[in-house]
């Protein structure tokens, strides 16, 4: 973990601002405490984009301060929906990372995502199910990619749903497999119907992300997703 943080150090300009972000980043990548606790009032997107480096320059990176301020001003950070969920999967980090990294696999276990199209090494196009048979679409960028350890993404500016997050793969102690942690933030754009977002990502985003991670675990460990849909019952 230290080596990863070290890599990031080299690729960043040494300003006070980025030092504190880098520290946060190191604790995100290597830490055992809750990520969202550590973030407190900061926006996840701000931090993720601020440290995006290593040849994966993201256009938001230089403007993160203002972007973050904009988000805070426009919506109040409290309006952001933030979720942190972790599951332990009895498979190697490599196997899990590889499956996840092919974003086109994600709809296999993410119920609200209808499809993901990978556009190039960095960009992908997302289509999600919305209420009343509608769909919502956006483009997202990978803003940090560390093989077998971490994938961070953010929607491109102007997306209908501003979202960012990362998934981290780290070894669980002893023989317990790999810990997969997802941290996500959705910012509700001004004017956008909050309820629609809530519907889209579930009334209980915590539960929805939790369920998705659980399905990911089921798929990776057992090769299928446990279900009772379509079984017999009294009419």
């Amino acid at each position: 973990m230290e080596t990863e943080a070290g890599k990031i150090n080299q690729s960043q300009a040494e300003t006070d601002e980025t030092i504190s972000d880098k520290e946060r980043w190191a604790s995100i990548v290597g830490g055992s405490a809750m990520v969202l606790m550590g973030l407190q009032q900061r926006s996840l997107r701000g931090i993720l984009t601020a440290i995006a480096g290593g040849g994966l320059a993201y256009h938001g990176a230089t403007a993160d301060k203002s972007l973050q301020d904009k988000v805070v001003d426009a919506t109040g950070i409290n309006k952001a929906i933030r979720v942190e969920k972790t599951v332990t999967i009895d498979k190697s980090a490599e196997e899990l990372y590889n499956y996840w990294h092919n974003f086109e696999n994600l709809p296999n276990f993410m119920k609200h995502v209808k499809s993901v199209q990978v556009l190039d090494m960095r960009r992908s196009h997302w289509v999600a199910n919305a209420p009343l048979g509608q769909t919502i679409e956006w483009d997202a960028d990978i803003i940090n990619d560390q093989p077998n350890q971490l994938i961070a993404w953010a929607s491109e500016e102007g997306a209908q749903v501003d979202n960012s997050g990362f998934v981290r793969f780290s070894p669980a102690p002893s023989d317990r497999g790999t810990e997969v942690k997802v941290v996500m933030e959705y910012n509700v754009p001004g004017g956008m119907v909050t309820a629609a977002i809530a519907k889209l990502f579930g009334e209980e985003p915590e539960q929805q992300i939790g369920d998705e991670l659980r399905r990911f675990k089921q798929l990776m460990e057992t090769g299928e997703i446990a279900t009772t849909e379509g079984q017999s019952r009294g009419q």
Partner: peptide, 15 residues
């Protein structure tokens, strides 16, 4: 509890 006629079960997953 009642004894009823219900649809036969189907295979839903590979295992």
């Amino acid at each position: 509890v009642r004894v009823e006629n219900v649809p036969d079960p189907k295979i839903l997953n590979p295992r």
